[in-house]
Design a binder for these strands. Structure first.
Lengths: 224, 224
DNA sequence: CCAAAAGTGTTTTCCATACACCCATGC
DNA sequence: GCATGGGTGTATGGAAAACACTTTTGG
């Protein structure tokens, strides 16, 4: 007897939109580094979409959880061994992949810049403002846009920003991360009042910065 | 040469958490009907989980979009031919289905009570407050809970409530739908002030209700 | 001194909530 | 009359936004 299990069925892959913060060396000893949002992309070395930049990911094994698949691929392809992950959306268009019907369970990932190794392979970090649709393979440009919109909305009602920051950070650093994601900067005094309940102050301060030292904070324990 | 396409890979199915409003006949000519949230469930007629209530859905064909798969199954199993659908989450636990590795792309669906036919098959509407985990097959109870939480948060910042209402409705009807979903009722005067920008008044009113007629409104055009 | 960032305080505007009240209908 | 829902207005408290200002550092 024929069962549904005898028929051809779609392949399943996972893809990660892994984001972190990049800080560029300032042109004056007084200035703080510029804060930008960047994404990890992987250059394909075979067809289809050879030499295009794509999201790290791969096919989902029959006995593997998608999150584990993502972590396995991030470690393999970009030497990333720790990040925060959350399911983003499942992309299912019929012609996503010319080889076969492949649906992709996409994840949004966030990590701290410092944890990002200088991996000498096909994986590179790009400023999200710098990438253009033409250079991106498959429907991954669309996935990236979906992830950025999701991130913009999620940082307004959750704690996930802290996944982009080191353990200890200044309020200006924190505000710059918000600004990099949302594309606009609120007044510092208002930002502080709003955010202060989400952080815990320490006794430490920055130094040697050419301006007044800033107090370091850590994230306050609580729900996401 | 062996390719990834030669290996066994997970099966993919779709499941719909289709919700609508039920109104029960009041015990007094003065009262309005009670407003409850209900869900469409389907009684399985074969193993596994024979005789358990499950979400309508089915396996995703190789050339089919998940949303079309949902609509096809809703029509087939419950004679539902129109509803609003949005992807909810993709459930991937390893032992969701004893027959094989099956991942499920779950959708949240909303429809107007009036469009719900009285289908005489294995599909029935249940009040969401009345269902218990023991009667639900697979991991569908978990999917339902996820859907209800999502709905609660989405009605606070989108327009999706209107998918649960007829074209024309009173503000009290609208408020009762919010109350049924959120589990608590705000003061009517405050609700009106908050909601008024989302609706467009008509010249029509209710009548024969044992109390003052209520103005009918329609949803205002705009973004979801 | 001064550029840059760190940090504080005050005012204004807006919105959610609470409260108090009147109106219209069918029986 | 009266039970029920329809509908309006005002007061209050707190958060967000706008604005103005002082402090601290390294060169």
């Amino acid at each position: 007897m024929n069962s549904i299990f005898d028929y051809d069925h779609p392949f399943v892959c996972t893809d990660a939109v892994l984001l972190s913060i990049s800080t560029t060396v300032p042109d004056s000893y007084r200035k703080l580094p510029e804060t930008n949002l960047r994404i990890l992309l992987y250059k394909r070395d075979s067809d289809p979409h050879k030499d295009k930049w794509c999201l790290p990911g791969g096919f989902l094994s029959i006995d593997e959880l998608p999150e584990n698949s993502i972590r396995r691929n991030l470690l393999l392809k970009a030497d990333v061994d720790e990040c925060w992950l959350e399911q983003l959306y499942t992309f299912c268009d019929l012609n996503r992949d010319s080889r076969a019907r492949v649906i992709s369970i996409a994840y949004l990932g966030l990590m701290n810049e410092a944890a990002s190794k200088n991996y000498q392979g096909n994986a590179t970090w790009f400023d999200v403002d710098a990438i253009s649709e033409a250079d991106i393979g498959f429907d991954h440009y669309n996935i990236i846009k979906t992830a950025l919109v999701r991130l913009q909305s999620k940082i307004t009602y959750t704690n996930i920003v802290f996944n982009l920051l080191p353990e200890e950070f200044t309020l200006t650093q924190l505000q710059n991360v918000y600004a990099a994601i949302l594309g606009k900067k609120e007044q510092a005094s208002n930002f502080r009042k709003r955010i202060i309940s989400m952080v815990q102050e320490t006794d430490k301060h920055t130094s040697n910065k050419g301006h007044r030292p800033a107090r370091l904070y850590v994230k306050k324990a609580g729900l996401y």
